[in-house]
Design a protein around this nucleic acid. Structure first.
Lengths: 362, 362
DNA sequence: TCCAGCACTCTCACCGACCGAGTGCCAATC
DNA sequence: GATTGGCACTCGGTCGGTGAGAGTGCTGGA
């Protein structure tokens, strides 16, 4: 445990563990960490040096492992619940494991096929989202969160204007991802079917296929093309569509598998309550998922890395999904204890996101 | 404890308790039961004879209460967790309490006003349902279940046919309760806008305002009125609408306040797991709620009265709600431990159902 | 650098004793 | 007949003590 800086030319690495050891020792220490993570995830019990040498081919004695463990603990990668117990990984330890040590474990062919068929049997968007959630929950044994395709990132398929008996106008928006939203509009002028039909046709011609986020200009053009007495109506419709559909409250998520949290072996130090409460704050939860998701595949957030205090004992695995052309229109994720099967969870989330993207514009 | 039948002309009543006592004793025994229920609900601890006389003006000594308790236990209305503990009500005891002893406790005026304003701020049906759930969960401190207006029991507001770029037809159904459903239809013939417009107009004329459950005949009439070459299309549309929208899978419910289950004092003997699992079986859960709900206000199902084994430790309080004309189109309910505040829960469910009915066809 | 041995610490399960709450029963009283 | 005070009994929860087991850190030698 010399505290000197690294000497030039020597083989020591201090990158992960902060102490100065040979490259081969360094590697074994990471093997020990991997073994600890894998054992702890499986048995849910702190793992000691003896067990470790018995269950893994480390090629060294328990005493040596103990030294390695001391180094890992010094580096903040593992910890002891109490003095005479084995070690468990810290959040930092899981992070290193996920980033560098975990081996990719793809799903089996039957599993993939099951995902594909189950998703393709869905009859509408609600069904697709519900089924995706059930798949994730079942594959990971954890809680699934699936976001509905975001309106802002979806394209417009059709815009419908329906006059109602009460003299109001019902504006219905259908996106190419299958979502349907509607708003009532108190129209200031009386309408004849011809005008309404014209407006509907113009609106649809101008907006079809565009992103909801950028149809403002298209609407402006339509309003100008209408006869002056109907321009207020056109702008009112545009107003309703653009404002209502950009509201954050229109983002929707679905939770599945909350019963998995109550399974034996899901013990949380603080109990289920903070977790369930965090899951119920859907707006905040979605914000967390959105922030951690980048376009490049699966993202993992571990324990205290999560902004939400209620999720301090959980890890979140998310992935974006989208239409077949690769754009991300929404997020899906699996949430479980930090002591989760990361390779399995990552594989499941990735696979479901992929098939979901394929099935989506049904 | 004579086992003789009731003697003619005497004042004894054996109706509730099975033993032969004077009417005044009978009444006191029910007072004791009420006191036990109220105390147990409040303290979550088995209640003994001494505590009971201290906290309630029963006008008798603990010894007398003990005799009454023995009778109540004999009648199966209360039970002892173990020999030297106090008594707790059984499901049967709660049932008697709910049916005969509980005093109606209406919500306060501010509470009512809060419900009204919170519901009226909703922007669309999703929002209404979500807000109703949050209200119930917050008022009762339990889990809320809110069903979306059932398609089958809703009226048809508008039916829209949209041709898509891929040469398919998108059928959109909008109900007067605000739900929107859509289905794709692979049309066998090519369409011109005129035909489509005619079909749309006829369909809407024939079906507007009718219940979805009984538009079959209307569709038949429309198909006959169309020129022969377009009859297949008309029947296909009718087919899609009638079958798809009568599917049970289209019934949707929303759960709110599951975190309440994890609050302290919500201890279930069997743990949360069976409860959460039962809540996740949405189809079965909805069946239970539907069966227990009658048109006449609030219904209560207690403990083992629930068909679902997972809900054996819970009670369910439901009410139908509907459009302002009084028809029930869906159900909302609150689920909590059998040891719940029945008067408060019933009042909350009733109030939210009432305001919901008023706000619904917004 | 590794390893065997050893002393030490700490948790957990178990045991027995004790205390208190609550009951059921009985005899006396209203 | 209903009520009550008294009393013996039961049983669960708590507390302190004990022993086993697991796991560690350290030291000295290979």
């Amino acid at each position: 445990m010399s505290e000197n800086g690294p000497e030039p030319g020597c083989t020591s690495r201090t990158f992960y563990l902060g102490t100065e050891v040979s490259a081969v020792s360094e590697e074994r220490r990471l093997d020990v960490l991997r073994a600890i993570v894998e054992d702890y995830v499986r048995t849910r019990e702190p793992v000691g040096s003896r067990i470790l040498t018995e269950r893994h081919q480390l090629g060294v004695s328990p005493a040596t492992v103990r030294n390695d463990m001391a180094a890992l603990e010094e580096a903040g990668l593992i910890a002891q619940p109490h003095t005479s117990a084995g070690r468990i990984p810290t959040d930092k330890g899981y992070r290193l494991f996920v980033d560098q040590l975990a081996e990719v474990r793809p799903l089996t062919v039957p599993q993939k096929r099951a995902i594909e068929t189950f998703l393709s049997e869905a009859v509408d968007l609600d069904d697709v989202v519900a089924r995706a959630g059930r798949l994730i929950a079942q594959l990971t044994g954890q809680v699934a969160v699936v976001q509905y395709p975001s309106l802002r990132r979806s394209g417009l398929r059709h815009l419908e204007l329906v006059p109602t008996a009460e003299g109001r106008l019902l504006v219905v928006v259908i996106t190419d991802t299958g979502r349907v939203e509607q708003r009532f509009l108190d129209v200031p002028v009386d309408l004849d079917d011809g005008t309404l039909g014209e407006l509907r046709a113009r609106l649809n011609a101008a907006t079809a296929g565009r992103r909801l986020a950028d149809i403002g200009d298209a609407f402006a053009g339509v309003a100008e093309a209408m006869p002056p007495e109907h321009r207020p109506l056109a702008t009112a419709v545009a107003e309703v569509v653009t404002t209502a559909l950009s509201e954050e409250s229109e983002e929707r998520i679905v939770l599945t598998g909350q019963a998995n949290l109550a399974r034996s072996g899901m013990r949380f130090e603080q109990g289920l309550r903070p977790v369930l409460e965090a899951l119920e704050e859907q707006v905040v939860l979605l914000g967390l998922l959105t922030d951690m998701t980048d376009d490049a595949g699966v993202a993992v957030s571990i324990g205290h890395e999560n902004r939400l205090a209620g999720l301090a004992e959980t890890s979140v695995v998310t992935s974006g999904y989208g239409s077949s052309d690769g754009d991300t229109v929404a997020i899906l994720s699996s949430i479980g204890p930090t002591r989760m099967d990361y390779p399995g969870t990552i594989a499941a989330v990735r696979a479901v996101a992929r098939y979901l993207s394929r099935v989506l514009p049904s």
